[in-house]
Amino acid sequence: MLDKLVGLAMLVAASAVFIYYSIWTLAMPFVDADHPLHSFFPPREWAIRIPVILILLGSAVLGSFLSIVMIRSNRKKAAKAKSAAAKKKA
């Protein structure tokens, strides 16, 4: 039950972010600059900066994770090879 609730909350959050970002990037350029609706949105240059920052952070985290996994895997292989060579020698 909890997993369905968490999934629903994530779906609602993702939908809200998508709708907000879509309105910000697609509709707001056609609204007059002095309209009060502009107070709900940050400046337009952040519509590009935020996704770029998120992509850079995500790729850095993913690259770090993959490099850690590869390093640990190589250490395990080296340890196995070393123990196999020691058993063969003895």
Rank of each mutant, 00 (worst) to 15 (best):
E45L: 09
M10H: 11
M70K: 13
M70N: 11
I19G: 03
M1D: 09
L66P: 00
K82C: 05
S64Q: 06
L11Q: 10
K80I: 15
G7I: 02
L26E: 06
P29Q: 01
H35W: 07
A81I: 10
A90H: 09
S15I: 09
P36N: 08
K88V: 01
V31H: 07
I71V: 13
V12S: 12
R72W: 04
K82G: 02
L11C: 08
S39W: 01
K77M: 08
L62V: 11
P43A: 02
A84V: 07
K88L: 13
I48D: 11
I68P: 01
A85C: 04
L2R: 14
V61E: 02
F41P: 01
A85Y: 08
L54F: 08
H35Q: 08
G63P: 04
A47C: 09
F30V: 05
H38K: 13
S22Q: 06
F40A: 15
I71H: 13
W24P: 05
I55C: 11
K4Q: 10
K87E: 12
L56D: 11
V6S: 07
F30R: 15
A60L: 14
F18I: 07
T25S: 10
I53Q: 01
L37Y: 08
A60Q: 03
L62W: 05
F30I: 06
Y20V: 03
I71R: 12
I53V: 15
R49M: 09
R49T: 14
S22Y: 06
S64F: 08
W46I: 05
L66Y: 01
A47R: 00
Y20K: 02
G63Y: 00
A14C: 14
I68Q: 07
I55D: 06
V61F: 01
Y21Q: 11
V69F: 03
A84G: 03
M1I: 07
Y21C: 06
K82S: 12
A60E: 02
F41L: 06
A47K: 00
P36H: 05
L66W: 00
A33C: 02
F18G: 15
M28N: 06
L11T: 14
V69C: 07
W24I: 03
S39D: 12
V17K: 03
F40E: 04
A79E: 15
D3L: 13
S67E: 11
A33I: 09
V12D: 08
W46G: 02
F40Q: 08
S39E: 10
P43Y: 00
P42G: 00
G63Q: 05
Y20D: 05
A78F: 04
K89R: 14
A90D: 12
A84H: 06
V52Y: 00
N74R: 15
N74V: 04
S15N: 12
K76M: 11
K77A: 14
K89D: 10
R44D: 09
